[in-house]
Simulated scan of single mutants.
Amino acid sequence: MAHSDSRTDVLAGRHPVRDALDLADGRIEKVYLQKGVHGSAIDGIRRAAKAAGVPVQMVPKPKVDGLAPQAEHQGVVAVVAPVAYADLDDMLAGIAPTLDVVRETKPVLIALDEVEDPRNFGAILRSAVAAGTAGAVVPERRMAPLSAVAIKASAGTALQIPVARVANLVDAIQQLKERGYWVVGLADDAEGDKATTVWTYDWDRPVVIVVGNEGSGLRPGVRAACDALASIPMRGPVESLNASVAAGIALFAAVKDRD
């Protein structure tokens, strides 16, 4: 969820927060309710937040006042992401609606497996936009928010690429495969029959590049779901690259031979 250094916007007041929750567009990241505040409107906000999968936290009045200074908050404040997440089906239909179109246009997508630093998230999206990537897929849990910090790190380009948030990344990968995409995970320790490098892999196909967590890399289930595991050969005495640097290299390797 949004942290204090990545908070971009707050929504204050019972009606604005309730209306935003009812939209269910994925922008509300957390709701803060002032302790001791009750009533049917508060109950309705709790129900709407639960239905939308948005966490609710009870906090003292000074905390709410600090979140929304100069605002008539009525004991209710929500942390809002600056942009809405896309629905995966809608995003994929917009990129290439049929298997034939997927095969013909060969889109490049990027998926992030629990990238937790919003600066890395933003930098990856900046590289993705620069490389002409059609969309990004991220998990709901243990994932950096699409916050002001992420957008600043992307130099604003995060607003130029659709980002779909999914409950289960492995399920999303299977869905992408069914739609005709090949899924390539970035892994320093790639070995076995799935092992390749970003320089030798045949990128001339619809492809999804999967970037793992900054510390632990790809989770085992995500790794197993990938069609290939690509490493970036190192010439100097460095064990691994920053996640956003690795993502940028792979993205431009994927599109270097395209028109």
Rank of each mutant, 00 (worst) to 15 (best):
V210K: 12
A148P: 00
A81E: 11
N213T: 01
V198K: 11
I209H: 12
L241Y: 14
L218D: 04
L125S: 03
L11F: 01
A190T: 00
S127T: 13
L241W: 13
V166W: 04
P145S: 07
D171A: 15
T157E: 12
K35L: 12
G122D: 08
D22G: 04
A167P: 07
N242A: 09
L125E: 03
A250H: 01
D204F: 02
E116L: 11
K177G: 05
M143L: 06
G217E: 05
D189R: 14
D189F: 10
L176F: 08
G156A: 06
P82E: 04
S244D: 01
K152A: 15
R46I: 09
Y32C: 13
V64G: 10
G236Y: 03
V80G: 07
P162L: 06
L176P: 01
V102A: 13
I161W: 05
S40V: 08
R27I: 02
A123H: 06
V108R: 15
V59W: 06
G36N: 07
R14H: 07
A254Y: 02
V83H: 14
E29P: 03
V108E: 08
A243H: 08
L11H: 00
V101F: 05
K63W: 11
Q175P: 00
R27N: 08
Q175R: 14
Y201T: 08
P62W: 00
V166Q: 04
L99D: 09
C226P: 00
I161C: 12
V76M: 09
I28T: 06
D117Y: 04
V77S: 07
R141K: 14
D202S: 10
S244P: 00
I28D: 08
Q74D: 11
V238S: 14
W199I: 02
I28N: 06
P16Q: 08
A243C: 08
K194V: 01
E140H: 13
A131T: 03
A134F: 07
A144V: 04
Y201F: 15
I173W: 04
D5G: 12
V129P: 05
A71V: 03
T98G: 06
A128F: 03
P82K: 06
D171C: 03
V255T: 15
R119P: 00
N242E: 08
A86E: 06
S147I: 01
C226R: 04
G215D: 14
A254H: 01
V166L: 02
V101T: 15
K152D: 13
H3W: 10
N168T: 08
L125F: 03
A51E: 14
E104H: 13
V198H: 10
I161S: 06
G94E: 05
V59I: 09
D257H: 15
K30A: 14
G36H: 10
G36F: 10
V80E: 13
A195V: 01
R103E: 13
I232M: 11
R7V: 15
K256N: 11
A228D: 02
R223Y: 11
E114G: 07
R7G: 07
G180R: 05
R119G: 13
A247L: 11
L112I: 01
E214V: 00
L92K: 02
E114R: 15
L146D: 03
A52T: 03
V10D: 10
S147P: 09
P162W: 02
D87Q: 13
E239G: 13
V31K: 07
R119W: 04
M91L: 12
S6D: 15
F121C: 01
V108P: 09
